[in-house]
Amino acid sequence: MNISTKTKSTWCPGCYNFQILAGVKRVLNEKIKSEKDRQKWMIVSGIGCHGKIFDYLNLNGIHTLHGRVLPTCLGMKIGNPNLNVIGFSGDGDAYAEGMEHLIHAARYNSNFKYIVHNNQVFALTVGQPTPTTEIGFKDKTTPLGVKIPPLNPIRLMLASGASFVARVFSDIKQIEFVLKEALKHKGFAFIEVLQPCLIFHPDIRYKKAFYSLEESGHDKSSFEQAWKKAQEFDYNTIEKIPLGIFYQTKKPVFEEHFEQLKKLKAKNIGWRDVKR
């Protein structure tokens, strides 16, 4: 079963989005062997360069509006809790236009997975700063340079009660590892992917600061450790940048709070199949 499409990519040559796409495909190709399997998966993407991933994955779902990936994913899980849903957002989508949904998605803990392609810039609108762009960044709309310190999404997710919080680099293997772990997790999984934009945010000095949480003996079940690790990189100054799973815990899953949804889950159907 091929989940690729024939659509010619419009990402820039060498774009790190290709790494994310390849990593996602590796994982899903293992899961999706038949048309029947394919019908069990849904993807949602937002607006920005990341959003084009929808065109390159032959799965059902929607390439939706800017910032609205999360409530759409939640609606899909409520519509049919047996569907596997993966949401893709950019940093503009997740941390600017749709910020309110991010906090609540962590609270709801619905069982879908969320990948944020964070290139620290609005790339498709040709290079404006986002909420995670470093101080001093300049472009034509911000000639005086960014003045406001960036947001720390990892800390935000930990504080909001997310049950799975990870950050990786846009590298096939890292994507593959973290998505597999996320799919095993019961509940909302937040995965941030650090992704340089070759055109508008090409600085890859941070590569030198990377180290693996998994290899450094980090205890992902400890909220305190996760909270400390999350502070090591403030998205502004580059010293140490931990990558991997910061935190994972068991929390009640949204779909399990409601008898109506539990019934659908047990019968392996969605509302569509409920006869009235």
């Binding site: 059902n60 609205r68 409530p71 759409t72 939640l74 609606g75 519509g79 949904h101 509302w271």
Partner: peptide
């Protein structure tokens, strides 16, 4: 046997409904 749910704002409300409608639910 149907479900009602209050979300964080009206934007979330309509987008959740769109997500559900995509799965074939009557929202």
């Amino acid at each position: 046997n149907f479900l009602t749910f209050e979300l964080e704002n009206e934007i979330a409300v309509i987008n959740a409904a769109i997500g559900s409608a995509i799965t074939g639910a009557r929202a």
